[in-house]
């Protein structure tokens, strides 16, 4: 018992040590950067000091502009994710389950996939102007393909022996789908979700930078016109944080949904 506790304490210490090691380089760089900015080695217009970015952060929180921009960006991202991800999931399930759907859909989808979705921005602006739909449309198109491909692949690679076992035990087609095929495809679908989240933020940054009147992308472009380099840097940092947040969220979803998977096993299972 006591040895177990001691070893757990040791593990916590080791993990803290690991975290410290991981943070050393960023912190050192930050200090060097601050020093370089203060001594005038780097001009503030090129790269403002971290401290002035922090000041800009506080100011933009205080006047409410940053939260407002971050909120609208997040809303666009999530709307696009739900629409595009939903379509990708449904298409993937259809083509994965029905050979007819695969014959009709898959080669078309594969063809469209090869068009870089950012290449259609001019067309999207022609269609939607700089309205909300334009950004959401672009994000939806971007996230649709990774979700589609991974859903399709996941369903196709479900162990056929398991499906046959389900049939032998009298499961109906719907039950086979809900209890065997979809859970079996889930790890692959979640991989698709991870890719999709990366594409989601990337698309949004580009779309908001090119055409928007709100959102983090707009905030940075606006700041560039007034040479507020600190706000530009702030925008980049906020994008990074939002991306990290999305990553943590997926990891939590994976841990919950794949608790059975040895690679994601939570302590509960260790005997």
């Amino acid at each position: 018992m006591s040895s177990g506790r001691r070893s757990r304490g040791g593990r916590v210490l080791r993990r803290l040590g690991g975290a410290a090691a991981a943070w050393t380089l960023p912190v050192v760089l930050l200090i060097l950067w601050e020093a370089a900015a203060r001594t005038g080695l780097i001009e503030a217009r090129t790269l403002p000091a971290p401290s002035s970015v922090a000041v800009a952060l506080l100011a933009s929180i205080e006047d409410g502009s940053l939260p407002a921009h971050a909120l609208i960006s997040t809303q666009r991202a999530l709307k696009g994710l739900f629409i595009g991800g939903g379509i990708g999931l449904v298409l993937g399930v259809l083509t994965g389950a029905f050979p007819i759907a695969e014959r009709f859909l898959d080669s078309s989808v594969q063809m469209l996939r090869n068009v870089p979705h950012l290449a259609i921005i001019p067309m999207v602006i022609l269609w939607f102007g700089i309205d909300e739909e334009a950004k959401i449309f672009l994000v939806a198109i971007g996230v649709m393909f990774p979700i589609y491909l991974n859903t399709f692949h996941g369903i196709r690679t479900v162990d056929r022996g398991l499906v046959e076992m389900g049939r032998v035990y009298g499961l109906s087609p719907v039950e086979l789908y809900l209890r065997i095929i979809l859970p079996g495809a889930l790890p692959s679908i979640l991989v698709g979700l991870r890719y999709a989240l990366g594409i989601m933020w990337l698309t949004l940054i580009v779309a908001e930078t090119i055409s928007a009147s709100s959102g983090i992308g707009y905030m940075t472009m606006n700041a560039r016109e007034f040479l507020q380099t600190d706000v530009v840097i702030l925008g980049v940092v906020v994008y990074a944080l939002l991306g990290k947040l999305a990553d943590i969220a997926t990891r939590l979803v994976e841990q919950w949904a794949l608790a059975w998977h040895p690679a994601y096993a939570v302590k509960e299972n260790v005997r």
Binding site: L171, R179, W260, H261
Partner: peptide
């Protein structure tokens, strides 16, 4: 191969039907 559903606990595998 036992063909157990890895995402179902032992009891739910046994009672799959």
């Amino acid at each position: 191969d036992a063909r157990l559903l890895p995402w179902k606990r032992v009891i739910d595998n046994v009672g799959i039907a």
